[in-house]
Every structure is written in structure tokens, then in C-alpha cells.
């Protein structure tokens, strides 16, 4: 799995709430049988018109914004369990997503792929949107070891929660299958006891 330790980057702000996985990657693009290539259809129907031309007013099409951090309104990733949503975000070049609230399954899927979901307070989320509004190139510094996000321009900082086990998986780049397989004897014992 892809490692995540520290990241300093500009952000792409998407100030919309309840962004569901059908917006992140519509169902009609789930037909691939590999994990690659979903990035080109990330936010497909918000990014493109029906005739496949770009929608100029959508933030991902605005050259003023770039960076490896996506910042979005609360309840990000609700809806379907499609891991393709996490793959699409990662494939489009993002390494972290910041919101004030994440849907459960999306959060788990992101963590299982080395895409860091960072939950911050409503106030801090607003502060990020304001900072990016004032300076489109405003940078955030994400420090997983210390579990902090800092708005570089203002120095405003917040501590974020992450499960200690998941944190060590991200820092070391190993996944749940590695963890469980090393204890396979316990599974067989459990089955025998049934």
C-alpha cells in the first residue's frame, strides 16, 4: 500500500456538502476490472458537459487551483461502498481529503489505499476555505506523525484523530491482509471452536 507520512501542498476547494460517491465516480464508469484510470472520470458530471466539453466554472477545471489535497464540505463520500471513489481521487493526483465529516465506508476505503481522510472541525474547514479564497495557492501542511494540519499562510493548526493501527499502516505502507494473514492460526482455531 502507498505510504503517507507528511505532505505540504496547495489545495483544491470543493465547498459542497453531502458529496456522494455517485458524484465522485458515476456508476456507468465502474465497469473497469483494474484499479487504474478512474481519475479521468472523477466528478465526471460536474467536470464535463453532456458533449464532453469542460465546464469552466467547476473548480477542478480552474487552473488557479492545484495540489494534492482535496477539501470538501461535510459528509463527504456518502452513498455507495464503491472503492472506485477512493481510487478515482487518488488517480487524479490527490493524497489526502479534508472534510468536517466523512461517511464510514468511504473513510475505510481511503485508509485501505493510502489516501488520508482528515476530519477537522467545521470552524477549521471554514478557515481553510477562507484562506484558499484569499490566496488560491495557499498551502496546507499535513503531518501524520503528529496528527496535525496547518494553514501555512496563517499558522492556524488543528490536531486530527486517526486510529493508531491505521496510522502505523499508512506510515509503514502495510495493509490489513498482511496483518490478519500473520495470525491465520487464530482463524482456524476459531472455526474449530464453532
Amino acid at each position: 500500500m502507498k505510504k503517507f507520512v507528511r505532505l505540504t501542498s496547495a489545495v483544491v476547494p470543493l465547498n459542497i456538502e453531502n458529496i456522494d460517491t455517485d458524484q465522485i465516480i458515476p456508476a456507468r464508469f465502474l465497469k473497469a476490472t483494474t484499479r487504474e484510470g478512474f481519475g479521468e472520470n472523477l466528478f465526471r458530471d460536474w467536470r464535463y458537459n453532456g458533449d464532453n466539453t469542460l465546464k469552466a466554472d467547476f473548480v477542478l477545471n480552474n487552473p488557479a487551483y492545484s495540489g494534492k489535497i482535496l477539501v470538501a464540505g461535510k459528509n463527504f463520500g456518502c452513498g455507495s461502498s464503491r472503492e472506485h471513489a477512493a481510487w478515482a481521487i487518488q488517480d487524479a493526483g490527490f493524497d489526502a481529503v479534508i472534510s468536517s465529516f466523512f461517511a464510514d465506508i468511504f473513510k475505510g476505503n481511503a485508509l485501505n489505499n493510502g489516501l488520508l481522510p482528515i476530519q477537522v472541525s467545521d470552524e477549521f474547514l471554514s478557515a481553510i476555505f477562507i484562506a484558499v479564497g484569499e490566496n488560491h495557492h495557499a498551502q496546507l501542511d499535513v503531518d501524520l506523525e503528529n496528527q496535525t494540519v496547518t494553514i501555512v499562510d496563517t499558522g492556524a493548526q488543528i490536531y486530527f484523530e486517526i486510529n493508531a493501527y491505521k496510522k502505523s499502516c499508512l506510515i509503514n505502507g502495510y495493509d490489513d491482509i498482511d496483518f490478519i494473514l500473520n495470525q491465520k492460526d487464530l482463524i482456524e482455531e476459531f472455526e474449530k471452536a464453532q
Binding site: 461502498s81 464503491r82 472503492e83 472506485h84 477512493a86 465506508i105 475505510g108 476505503n109 485501505n112 489505499n113 495493509d175 490489513d176 491482509i177 490478519i180 494473514l181 491465520k184 482463524i187
Partner: peptide, 14 residues
């Protein structure tokens, strides 16, 4: 419901 990485986990480890 689970994601595909977890589908793989269940395949591999139940």
C-alpha cells in the same frame, strides 16, 4: 457493505 480491499481481505482470510 464493504469496499473492494475488504472483499479481498475476506477472500484471503474470511
Amino acid at each position: 457493505g464493504i469496499g473492494t480491499s475488504q472483499v479481498e481481505q475476506v477472500f484471503a482470510t474470511q
